[in-house]
């Protein structure tokens, strides 16, 4: 499967803005356009800022909910957040570091501009002399030319909006995945039970293994639901199953064994080589399950979801066909 892996131009822009601030006590605030809906972007963005600025995670705050202050962003979809918001944050960090470096150079009385950020200190690469980050920020505020330790950046991926034939290099990054699925079909009831799912996915550089696992597992179970049980039933414009009683999301009791084999690569466009991972795992699942059912029964099921009734009907039709041929 080939899918978008961040920076997909579903709209004319797939951009994301970031405003970054460091206060006189060395606390960092990331105001990002990107929302947190549970995918873990708060953690990943804070990790990036911590890595770049040498500020402890506990001193970093991510603001992503207040639309009065946050910059513009397209939304959370298409595996884009780590990729787009990450690049946007790195862009802002770069600008802010230029300001900080300049002031640090002044204070350390050194002409060169190569610095490392670690443990709340700004360290000269050459002389190993260092100065506290918060002190540099205070000096930016108090000494001339008196400026803020703030930077804003808007990141727009290099991808292009698709042409009239829906073609083009539409994504900043692409995800590649394969899934192998084993199912068990009850030929008495038509129930399909998914036993094992093997997932291999190009995930770029892994930023946070725990969050990555969560994205993959969550995506897969949605994919299983999409394949087997989830269907919005409509009649004359009215939804017939607008409740969790009849719209059947899978429960904990339904989960198959998920075996995840991340393929770690370096994406040249992504932050630290990372790429988007969240959406890809749910794309191949239904197709793999349908193929597995076809393989088990030698029937064709092309209509999702593959309900027990559809399976039983297909089995019955196959039997009927066999009789007719004989």
């Amino acid at each position: 499967m080939l899918h978008v892996g961040g920076g997909a131009k579903i709209y004319r822009s797939d951009g994301c803005g970031t405003t970054l601030k460091i206060d006189p006590y060395g606390y960092c605030t990331i105001i990002t356009g990107s929302n947190e809906i549970g995918q873990g972007s708060e953690t990943v963005l804070a990790m990036m800022a911590s890595e770049e600025l040498g500020i402890d995670l506990k001193r970093i705050k991510v603001i992503n909910t207040d639309t009065d202050i946050k910059p513009w962003d397209v939304g959370v979809h298409a595996s884009r957040t780590s990729f787009v918001a990450g690049n946007s944050l790195l862009g802002a960090i770069k600008i802010l570091k230029e300001k900080l470096n300049k002031k640090a150079g002044e204070l350390l009385k050194t002409a060169h501009s190569e610095f490392e950020y670690d443990g709340g200190e700004i360290i000269s690469n050459k002389t190993k002399e260092h100065i506290a980050l918060d002190k540099v920020v205070r000096e930016m505020h108090f000494s001339e030319p008196n400026e803020l330790a703030i930077a804003s950046f808007f990141y727009e991926p290099t991808s292009k909006f698709q042409d009239k034939e829906f073609k083009g290099n539409v994504s900043g990054s692409y995800a590649f995945a394969a899934q192998a699925i084993e199912v068990e079909v009850d030929t008495y009831t038509g129930n399909v039970r998914v036993l094992d799912i093997y997932v291999a996915q190009d995930v770029g550089k892994v930023l946070n293994p725990l969050l990555l696992g969560g994205q993959i597992e969550g995506g897969i179970l949605q994919g299983v639901g999409y394949a087997l049980t989830e269907e919005l039933l409509m009649h004359e414009g009215k939804i017939l199953n607008s409740n969790f009683h009849n719209y059947k999301m899978l429960t904990a009791a339904d989960i198959p064994n998920i075996h995840f084999f991340p393929i770690e690569t370096n994406d040249k466009e992504g932050p630290y080589g990372a790429k988007g991972v969240g959406e890809a795992p749910l794309i191949p699942t239904a197709a793999a399950i349908a193929n597995a059912v076809c393989n088990a029964l030698d029937i064709e099921v092309i209509d999702l979801p593959i309900t027990p009734e559809k399976v039983l009907r297909a089995i019955a039709e196959k039997k009927k066909l066999k009789k007719e041929i004989v």
Partner: peptide
């Protein structure tokens, strides 16, 4: 008990 899920079912 026959349903589509393994749990939380009203018997079909």
């Amino acid at each position: 008990k026959i349903g589509t899920r393994r749990s939380m079912e009203c018997s079909v």
